[in-house]
Design a protein around this nucleic acid. Structure first.
Length: 492
RNA sequence: CGGGGUGUGGCGCAGUUGGCUAGCGCAUCUGGUUUGGGACCAGAGGGUCCUGUGUUCGAGUCACAGUACCCCGACCA
């Protein structure tokens, strides 16, 4: 069949791509490196948005919107920041088109050249800090806690659906504070929200930690991250939260008068997660039959497939199904009755599995007679026949089970691939086999770089809420003293 | 930007040492039979074989150039 998905073990990237395409999440656009997110995929993203948004708002964050275009001069004020993004920017140079004087369609009007080029935002720190300058004069104006949901453009060399596209959707929070401590606390608070969301909504086990200086965001003093492991054992950075110090405040001259009446630069954070989370969802839970969606993110939580020979049977089954649908709705469970009469049940089963719907109900003449219904769960691919009585309550519990089970499965998988490693020889052997290795590191950028050059492995994070180690040891590569283990892995 | 590969109906591919009307599977459409794990039968429609130039009696096939896409590097959420 055309819809069959490549086996995960045979070709992991092909499998990933198949899932994204065939489960109807997204497709490659005609524009190089860009992606079309299809309605089914977007519905998942919307749920992520709404859930995160509610979590942000509980901490006092408000949504706002800043321009897509950033004047080149703004962008170049923070030196490290430019260095980090300069190589991958789209630049607007003109503002008008005209008919080709030679009659060959449309050309750029050379007389419409912009005096100053505009950069399509790769991230919005610069334009936001340029704006914050006008918002902040006194300690009474602080803190400012803004978030925006938007698109950004990074002109990447090689792209992959969701994981790396030239344009992607994300949320970027930008906060301004009176003290360093307050800003650092905010950065920590936000990364913990990300971790909570990843674990409890996406069923994605993540390790929270600090980035090493090499892996930090361009312009940050500290970068906090949530790191997930995909089913090929590679690491995926799923979200980051940065403590920016006073770097941007100084570059954009954002000062406030403190309680002592003195001028002081503002302290900043920024934090973001992107549609890359969709990629994480696919890779963390999918199997050879397709997508496996955690119930909390599934656009359709329960799908019902009627099985019938005659119109009478058809109507009788549908009547029951509408009753169930109503009962599910009353409990806040989304469902769909797949009443397409041109497709056979087997085809529908396979298709809904491909799309990752957590629970499938099937009902036919046999069930009508017995007062039963067949309940199949996507995560375990098992099914059982149940009495109709109390089915909605049962499904409600089942969805919670599934959410839990998916998380547990991913957690067990990841834990089975995390281990201590104290020998450089062993490290070189094991790091390519899809693992996180907990190793001692001397804390220097040189050592980290040397390890990366030799093995492609990077420090995913210095963990703070799981796999935390305070034991003394010696660096796996340099032999110099180390104060604790860090997480090494090969990243997407 | 370096290394490799591929361009043939909507999708996936075959096409021999150059040869006659360019095939196959899936999808689509029509009719019928089916329907508890991806249905079957019969019929139908759909192609500037990536572009250009060249070699030849003859090019999907050979040569050169261009171009697009994919994979592996470097870069990255």
């Amino acid at each position: 069949m055309a819809k069959e998905v490549t086996k995960r073990a045979e070709n992991y990237s092909q499998w990933y791509n198949d899932l994204a395409l065939k489960a109807d999440l997204a497709e490659q656009s005609a524009v190089r490196g860009c992606m079309v997110i299809k309605p089914y995929g977007y519905a998942i993203w919307e749920t992520m948005q709404h859930t995160l948004d509610a979590m942000f708002k509980k901490t006092g964050v408000q949504n706002a919107y800043f321009p897509l275009f950033i004047p080149k001069s703004f962008f170049s004020r923070e030196a490290e920041h430019v260095a980090g993004f300069a190589k991958e920017c789209a630049v607007v140079t003109h503002h008008r088109l005209m008919n080709d004087p030679d009659g060959n369609g449309i050309v750029v009007d050379p007389s419409a050249k912009l005096e100053e080029e505009l950069i399509v935002r790769p991230t919005s720190e610069t334009i936001i800090w340029n704006t914050y300058k006008n918002w902040i004069t006194s300690w009474r104006d602080l803190p400012i806690l803004c978030n925006q949901w938007c698109n950004v453009v990074r002109w990447e060399m090689r792209t992959r659906l969701f994981l790396r596209t030239a344009e992607f959707l994300w949320q970027e929070g930008h906060t301004a504070h009176a003290t360093s401590q307050e800003a650092q606390d905010k950065a920590m608070e936000m990364v913990k929200i990300y971790a909570d969301f990843a674990r409890n909504v996406m069923a994605l086990p993540v390790i929270v930690g600090h980035k090493s200086p090499n892996e930090r965001f361009a312009g940050a003093l500290d970068t906090l991250t949530i790191e997930a492991m995909m089913q090929d054992g590679k690491a995926l950075q799923a979200g980051t939260s940065h403590f920016l110090g006073q770097n941007f405040a100084k570059s954009f001259d954002v000062q406030f008068t403190n309680k002592e009446g003195k001028q002081e630069y503002v302290w900043a954070t920024s934090w973001g997660v992107s549609t890359r989370l969709m990629g994480a969802l696919i890779m963390a839970h999918g199997d050879d039959n397709g997508l496996v969606l955690p119930p909390k993110l599934a656009p359709i939580q329960v799908v019902m497939v009627p099985i019938y020979r005659t119109d009478e049977e058809h109507n009788a089954v549908l009547d029951k199904m509408y009753e169930i649908k109503k009962a599910l709705e009353a409990m806040g469970i989304s469902s769909k009755i797949d009443d397409r009469d041109t497709l056979r049940p087997g085809f529908k089963f396979a298709e809904w599995e491909l799309k990752g719907v957590p629970v499938r109900l099937a009902m036919g003449a046999r069930d009508l007679g017995n007062g039963t219904i067949e309940v199949a769960r996507r995560d375990t691919l098992t099914k059982e026949t149940m009495p109709l009585e109390g089915i909605a309550e049962h499904i409600n519990g089942l969805l919670e089970d599934i959410q839990q089970n998916i998380y547990q499965k991913a957690l067990d998988f990841r834990n089975s691939r995390v281990e201590n490693c104290d020998s450089w020889e062993e490290f070189k052997e094991k790091i390519g086999t899809g693992r996180f290795l907990l190793c001692h590191w001397d804390g220097t950028a040189e050592t980290e770089q040397a390890i990366k050059d030799a093995t492609k492995a990077t420090i995913r994070c210095i963990p703070i809420d799981s796999f935390v180690s305070e034991e003394e040891g010696v660096d796996i590569f340099s032999g110099k003293p180390s104060k604790g283990r860090v997480v090494f892995g090969i990243a997407y």
